[in-house]
Design a protein around this nucleic acid. Sequence first.
DNA 1: CAGTGGTCTAGACCACGAG
DNA 2: TCGTGGTCTAGACCACTGG
Lengths: 258, 258
Amino acid sequence: MATTPTSPDPSPDPDALAPAFSPLYQQIKGLILRSLQAGEWKPGDMIPSEFELAARFRVSQGTVRKAIDELATDNLLVRRQGKGTFVATHAEQHIQFRFLRLLPDQGTLDDQGPAERRIIDCRRLRAPAEVARPLGLRSGDAVLQVRRVLAFGGTPAILEEIWLPGGPFKGLTLDTLASDTGPMYALFESRFGVRMVRAAEKIKAVAADADAAQRLSVPEGHPLLSVERLSYTYNDTPMELRRGLYRTDARHYRNELS
Amino acid sequence: MATTPTSPDPSPDPDALAPAFSPLYQQIKGLILRSLQAGEWKPGDMIPSEFELAARFRVSQGTVRKAIDELATDNLLVRRQGKGTFVATHAEQHIQFRFLRLLPDQGTLDDQGPAERRIIDCRRLRAPAEVARPLGLRSGDAVLQVRRVLAFGGTPAILEEIWLPGGPFKGLTLDTLASDTGPMYALFESRFGVRMVRAAEKIKAVAADADAAQRLSVPEGHPLLSVERLSYTYNDTPMELRRGLYRTDARHYRNELS
DNA sequence: CAGTGGTCTAGACCACGAG
DNA sequence: TCGTGGTCTAGACCACTGG
């Protein structure tokens, strides 16, 4: 590790086509990532200082810094000057809505108070094919399905259907969810050790069917935003499939392009 | 500039409340940005090497590097190892669809061929209030309105209404647009010196009105994605307002959250 | 081969937060 | 006052590109 920066790290797979050359700081990044996955440092924890990590990995502080820089821009770590570097968590006020992009058309911030949550049901099912595939499961594997409605100021705004793999979320019940206040992703961290790191969404415009119309208090056929989200944990492992129907009469989905 | 890093740079405005302390590399970033705005280097051009810039600004190469790093992650510059650092441009194949997030539900890449474009009209108008405000103009100021339809494989997919400030885009005509192949934002760069740097979109689900239904070959009332985009040039100056209606029967709007 | 960006190091000093 | 991250520097060497 202290030799040339691009040492391929004596690995198996000698006849592989992959170049597998990577800069030292990328290797360090990988090592830190492994510690995160292994739970050596939990969400909210402070990780060792840059100098400590530099000593542990036998590299200079600047190299550790660059690794941490990237992990911080990926939102896996949070740097706080004068205090230390911390494992990112969903249990923070200003991070609450990192994955919820629905904002009111009017009005300043989302200081309309938090969303009111009403859980419809929470069932243990066998995964249909179209749910199993994106989650990397096999059809028929055990999954949890949660359905709920989010409302703002008494007006229903979101109808969601959440699919979770049965293994990692063993023990999740309606009571667990109902008795919990705070972000659902924070619950996943504290109770199941599952941290959502990134997500991809597919958005369409659809017409409300009878059930959705009733639950969202709109006429049948009313245009709704369909948001299908696949969320990933550390190793790009998909861990949640979420289908949401958003009312967009008084709200909009905000997106920044750059 | 070669003294302490946080020297406020002997500037006017002595009684300002602003702290105005900023790291050297941020100041360098600002200077590079000014050269970009001033057109010292045009889109596609190679900018001076890191050492040249370091000499010009009387700082070390590492400081210039950090400034360029940020400009590169903001997509204002593109680094090419062994060649140099270049001013980003929309006139590149792999950057074509940086702002168009509509992808086919099935199918590999967007190798369905490029979009077919049909311009409906291009008119010089006085800005209505709801157009003037986001563009930072006054109601009644001269604006250009372009309407067009994009189709993929013969099927119309997008109906767009584009509003541009009359000043910067003086001389833009239907012929200019019609005779141009390639990305519209590339045309803006080469003909008007306007480079779009970032954009914000507001997305809703709406029902097709009679006009939209006819132009997009869908029944009236069909759910469509309404995408309202405000695009900005260098100084966070809004330069384009675009209202699009997207068919999402066979396509979806893709978004990555992190 | 020369020129460019990319990586790594080592050391100095600053800014911030907390005791 | 101390420990943390933040900035800046200077110099060495590597990797890629093109003549």
